[in-house]
Design a binder for these strands. Structure first.
Lengths: 121, 121
DNA sequence: CACTTACGTAAGCCGTCTCTTACAATAGAC
DNA sequence: GTCTATTGTAAGAGACGGCTTACGTAAGTG
């Protein structure tokens, strides 16, 4: 997953993903979209994206056609959803809290701002 | 936005975001969570996260309490949603196509990203 | 065979990132 | 004032990433 993040954080690689998201394109056509970077540079970017599972490659004669792999973006998306989504953690914490409130009848609410009790395991 | 991505792609910084997502913590306590990295290193990570708008800092005496800034993660999330979501781009492309059919002209897309045409040197 | 097209790969340059150690700055206790 | 606690900052080392030029590889043409 870290490889996916490293791949996506590069602006040109994101642009490549945009280019071949709907239609596959040969490497040369992709490189032609970048006027300020050489073709080998794009080739290296393509390798990074492919190794990260974000692109699929299909050979046709001497050309190599690339296209975004939807599953790759899906995995990335799922990872990030889980990362910043409080719901999962909230559910977990609520479960723990419920468990605790069954043991102790004392109702505690550490969600208040400036919680002094930072006891965390 | 690139600064936000650069900040998030670092594993330790993501871990920091996790740590202070629900409760604020002083810098020292955050650094104490990382046994393999020195405290100044964490301090620098905190700076990167704060500059990217992902953390807020609150001073209390000599301590500095950090906490995740929800709006920061929200912006990042919105950016990524737009990135891999085809709907927005589809709408945009349709709009462009409609615009072109009104101009009835040979559209040549002179928009360049870098603007520079020549090679580096 | 030679020649061209399309593309990846190797080696190296150079900037940037992350870490460390050493030092500075601020707030409080005495 | 001195001393301590907590934190940021400076400077440099080492690793890494992205780029370029030069070369290698594979498929097609004549």
């Amino acid at each position: 997953m870290q490889a996916v993040l490293d791949a996506v954080v590069e602006p040109r690689r994101r642009e490549i993903l945009r280019l071949v998201r709907r239609t596959e394109l040969p490497a040369g056509a992709i490189a032609a979209q970048f006027g300020d970077v050489s073709r080998p540079a794009i080739s290296q970017h393509l390798r990074v994206l492919r190794d990260a599972g974000l692109l699929v490659e299909r050979r046709e004669g001497t050309r190599r056609l690339y296209r975004t792999r939807p599953a790759g973006l899906g995995e990335l998306r799922a990872f990030l959803e889980e990362f910043w989504d409080t719901r999962l953690e909230a559910l977990r914490q609520e479960a723990e809290q419920e468990q605790r409130s069954r043991d102790h009848e004392q109702t505690e609410r550490p969600e208040r701002r400036g919680g002094k009790r930072g006891r965390r395991g």
